[in-house]
Design a protein around this nucleic acid. Structure first.
Lengths: 128, 128
DNA sequence: CACATATAGGTGTACGATGCATATAGAAGC
DNA sequence: GCTTCTATATGCATCGTACACCTATATGTG
């Protein structure tokens, strides 16, 4: 059990497909393209994301009908594929939000046990 | 884009490997065996878990040195493999807790944007 | 000119996590 | 003898995604 600790240095905590709701939420704010979305999604835990992952996800989301895109070529530099959220995409985002809320409750239960706090008290504030 | 919505009925929201910290936390409270852990982990989002997934995860965790086990045969019925958490396991649990806290902050950011205001009463889960 | 760099989008492949089906076995009840 | 509950486990297929790699446009620099 000595050599094994080395590979435990980092754990993957994000839920599967976490990128999808993050993209949908970002696009609900304003239309965007892949290269820009890489920066915008960084705030949600994708600091070290591989560009390929994002681009592939966007293409798949368009196939699923939750986003749509068109090329923007009327400027200097490489063309941009600009994405916007569809009605189905907004509904899907709502669906995700519900599921995520449920899971926040599970994580709250986890931390209540972890920190040893009783589950029904209300007078706790920032025990740190 | 209508036919595609059908397969969006359910999304998988749990963090990857979420079962691992849940098991470690459960075992930190008291030693337990697979069949019992199925009930105990249900409270954390594993209501419909396949037993195979749990047993496989437990064997792997023992290989990784974060739990250890011994057979309990001194009673009627099938033998139980009773697990307990190791020192490395407790350290690993702490490590997970930190990562989960980070993820919670990402989700808080998500919901602030989604709802336009912070949804949770802020508690700082004091993880050392 | 050649080249490096920033911007922009993308594919191929392999691995890991997990859902589902299935197998084994001891004890208890009808 | 058969079913059910308890208890542990493996095999296989799928899906998400990390990693490596590729193409192409425009700008700046020696």
């Amino acid at each position: 059990m000595m050599a094994k600790e080395e590979k435990k240095r980092e754990v993957e905590v994000r839920p599967r497909n976490w990128l999808v709701p993050v993209i949908l939420l970002s696009l609900r704010e304003w239309n965007s393209y892949g290269y820009e979305l890489m920066e915008r999604t960084a705030a949600f835990g994708f600091e070290a994301m591989n560009p390929g992952t994002l681009y592939r996800t966007l293409r798949q989301m368009e196939k699923d009908g939750v986003v749509e895109s068109e090329w923007e070529t009327s400027r200097g530099g490489p063309a941009r594929r600009v994405y916007s959220i569809t009605d189905a995409g907004e509904a899907y985002l709502d669906f995700w939000a519900e599921a995520l809320e449920q899971y926040q409750r599970n994580m709250d239960a986890f931390f209540r046990l972890y920190t040893g706090r009783p589950p029904r008290k209300d007078n706790e504030n920032g025990a740190k």
